[in-house]
């Protein structure tokens, strides 16, 4: 893991000015080497890019490294960005390709390093129901459920897992996923269907009960 220590971010007036700029203007400025403009672009998409990679790898450290590398690579490749798609789709594509390559390399040594669940999870009625008295696995806590869910996701192929993560977890549309994954919408739908089928079989104890 690459760790570069950076000073805690302090936002100046010029940074605030950048935050009001349109994405296109920020991209144009960043293409000319303006790091403040690029910093603003990173801030806009860091959470979504990190989350996608984290849900694919089930490992915080790997996700941190890959997310940073994706942004660095995107900056270096900005000159080749023609604007045919949105910057957001283009950036996603870089992150997705990087993650899939990484996962193929580490295929035989998958190690989970899961993030903690936030406080709101206990107020989510659907999830509470999954571990309530109605289920045969009522002894299972949310943490155990989290581990089972991540373990099941890791058993899917990279392309199937990506389809589920982007659609069912991140909430992207079929069209957006097709653009990001460089395939047609039919392929996205079919990947989603088979991925869900496999997940349902792997998580039968939890899914059948409700």
């Amino acid at each position: 893991m690459t760790m570069i220590m950076a000073e805690p971010a302090e936002r100046t007036d010029s940074d605030a000015a950048f935050s009001e700029l349109e994405e296109k203007e920020l991209v144009t400025n960043a293409r000319h080497g303006n790091l403040k403009a690029y910093d603003e672009l990173v801030r806009r998409y860091q959470e979504r890019i990190y989350a996608t990679i984290y849900h694919m790898t089930a490992n915080h450290e790997d996700a941190n490294d890959l997310a940073q590398e994706s942004f660095v690579k995107a900056f270096q490749a900005l000159k080749s960005f023609k604007g045919g798609s949105s910057f957001y789709t283009w950036l996603y594509r870089i992150a997705v390709n990087k993650t899939i390559n990484f996962l193929k390399q580490r295929k035989n040594r998958q190690h989970m390093s899961l993030n903690d669940l936030d406080f709101n999870v206990e107020h989510n009625p659907d999830l509470v129901a999954l571990i309530s008295d109605k289920t045969p696995r009522r002894e299972a806590g949310l943490t155990e459920l989290q581990e089972k869910l991540n373990g099941a996701l890791l058993k899917l192929s990279e392309s199937h897992r990506m389809a589920v993560v982007l659609h069912d977890v991140q909430g992207l549309s079929h069209e957006e996923i097709a653009k990001i994954m460089h395939c047609n919408i039919g392929t996205v739908r079919s990947r989603l269907f088979y991925a869900r089928q496999q997940l349902q079989a792997l998580l039968a104890d939890y899914v059948k009960a409700t």
């Binding site: 984290y54 849900h55 993030n115 903690d116 669940l117 936030d118 999870v121 999830l127 869910l149 998580l203």
Partner: peptide, 14 residues
């Protein structure tokens, strides 16, 4: 299954 997958959205970094 989709409701179960919603659990992933509650996983947050430090």
């Amino acid at each position: 299954l989709r409701r179960l997958l919603a659990l992933k959205r509650h996983e947050v970094p430090p």
